[in-house]
């Protein structure tokens, strides 16, 4: 069993708890144990905090990192926004003494010190990594194959970009999550503008909701053209923007899509035999029923 401190973030536990539940259970089946990271907070939101004062963003993220350092465990998380804060601040503080000293000056006041002793991973990259899990193991864990469904992937931005600071290779046309979708028995589908942002980031969702939804809608149009049964992603904030966003798009623009949006962990949960109730899919803004009817 590989053990990680599970950094939850905000939107998964507080809006899509099925993703949290699915993460524990699917990971466990794949040899990954997720442990509570007690007292963790918001990562904090990289758009809001980073825009106001990067130094505060570093210090707040560092507090979460130190909690995991104290557990002597690497962090696993399930949100691209959290990845931006937690992975990137860890990386920056490890490689920039001036920043680290600045952060430790603040953390001293709460008896903490950033030491740089742990690493941070997205659960999706752990699932994909053959040394930890790998696509074959995912395929072998499937009991309810999602055969006959067409699924598109939204990669989101902050996991893989900026590419020269990350380690995921191309950010123009990646296919590694599609491989993990195919492992579930579904047909991964390409669509126009796959790498376009969901529209929510950088504080734009709060600053200008119509502008933000118009970006989402551009993706929705492309997804509709590709005739997919569901969209999957690895970021609860993207999920919120596509799922609840479709309702807002309906209200504000008068366009309806009803496209189910599932976090990859939820999809994996279904394929491993978890029920829609065990995944709290009823909390989604857009009903997953049409998709479920195809697979269950």
């Amino acid at each position: 069993m590989h053990e990680y401190a599970f950094y939850l973030g905000c939107i998964a536990p507080n809006r899509y708890p099925g993703s949290e539940s699915a993460s524990y259970r699917t990971a466990e089946k794949l040899g990954i144990k997720l442990l509570d990271l007690k007292g963790a907070s918001c990562c904090p939101a990289p758009g809001a905090f980073g825009s106001i004062d990067l130094n505060i963003w570093y210090a707040m993220a560092a507090r979460n990192l130190v909690l995991a350092e104290q557990m002597k465990k690497d962090i696993a998380l399930i949100c691209n926004g959290c990845y931006k804060s937690i992975w990137e601040v860890n990386h920056k503080l490890k490689h920039n003494d001036e920043l680290r000293d600045g952060v430790n000056e603040v953390l001293k006041g709460i008896d903490m010190e950033f030491k740089g002793t742990i690493d941070v991973f997205h659960l999706a990259e752990l699932f994909y990594d053959p040394e930890i899990c790998g696509v074959k193991k995912i395929r072998d864990s499937v009991t309810v194959p999602l055969t006959g469904t067409r699924i598109a992937v939204h990669y989101g931005c902050h996991l893989m970009k900026p590419k020269k600071e990350r380690h995921f290779g191309t950010t123009e046309a990646p296919t590694w999550i599609e491989e993990m979708v195919a492992a579930l028995g579904a047909e991964p589908v390409e669509y126009r503008n796959k790498m376009l942002c969901c529209g929510a980031g950088g504080g734009v969702r709060g600053y200008d909701i119509v502008h933000s939804l118009d970006i989402t809608n551009e993706k929705m149009i492309a997804l509709q053209e590709a005739k997919v049964d569901a969209l999957t992603e690895v970021c609860p904030f993207c999920q919120l923007q596509f799922d609840r966003g479709q309702i807002e798009i309906q209200e504000k623009f008068g366009v309806t899509y009803n496209l189910p949006v599932l976090h990859y962990c939820e999809l994996l949960g279904l394929a491993q035999g978890m029920s829609p109730q065990e995944l709290a899919l009823d909390l989604h803004g857009i009903s997953c029923e049409p998709f479920l009817q195809k697979v269950l």
Partner: peptide, 30 residues
């Protein structure tokens, strides 16, 4: 219903950690 604690094991489940966060934000007078 999912068998998860009503509040996640974050600052929600362990509110004693909130004062550390407030200390950081107050440090910068944010």
């Amino acid at each position: 219903k999912l068998g998860l604690p009503r509040d996640p094991p974050t600052t929600h489940g362990y509110p004693e950690f909130i004062k550390g966060i407030q200390y950081i934000l107050d440090y910068y007078e944010l």
